[in-house]
Simulated scan of single mutants.
Amino acid sequence: MKKILITGACGFMGKMIRECAKAFDDIEIIAGVDIAGDGEGLTIYRSLENVTFAVDCLIDFSHPSLFDDVLTYATKYKVPTVVATTGLSKEAYKRMDVAADNIPLFVSANMSLGINLICELLKKAVPTLYKTYDIEIVEKHHNRKLDAPSGTAIMLADAASKSVDEEFDYIYDRHSVRQKRNKMDIGFSSVRGGTIVGEHDVIFAGDDEIITISHSAMSRRIFANGALEAARFISEKRTGIYSMEDLIKERLENK
Rank of each mutant, 00 (worst) to 15 (best):
G198F: 10
V138D: 15
A9W: 00
E49I: 01
D101P: 03
I17D: 11
T52H: 06
D38T: 03
I118S: 10
T132Q: 11
A148R: 14
K15H: 11
K183A: 10
R238S: 14
F53K: 10
S112H: 07
M13V: 11
G32F: 03
L71C: 08
S189I: 06
D38N: 11
P64Q: 08
V126C: 07
R144L: 13
V197A: 03
E253H: 00
E139P: 02
A84H: 13
V202R: 05
K90S: 10
G41I: 00
A31R: 04
D185H: 01
K162A: 02
S47L: 01
R46N: 08
E136R: 15
A9F: 08
L228F: 14
I203C: 13
V33H: 07
L117P: 08
F24K: 11
G194E: 08
M184H: 10
K2T: 10
L156N: 02
A205T: 12
E49C: 12
E120D: 09
P80Q: 02
A36T: 11
M96W: 00
K2Y: 12
L66A: 14
T152L: 09
V164Y: 01
G39W: 00
T132E: 15
M16R: 15
E40Q: 05
I17Q: 01
Y45R: 07
N102P: 07
K162G: 02
I203K: 13
D68C: 10
A160S: 01
R144A: 10
G39V: 05
Y93H: 12
M155N: 12
A109T: 03
V98Q: 05
I17G: 03
H141N: 12
H215R: 07
M96H: 01
A92K: 04
L42F: 10
M111V: 05
A23G: 11
G193P: 12
T52A: 06
E91C: 04
T212C: 11
K94F: 14
E40M: 00
M16G: 03
S190L: 02
I59P: 09
R251L: 06
R181F: 04
F233S: 08
V51T: 03
A159N: 01
Y130V: 05
S161T: 09
M244Q: 07
R144S: 14
I44T: 04
I171P: 06
N182M: 04
A74P: 03
T72V: 14
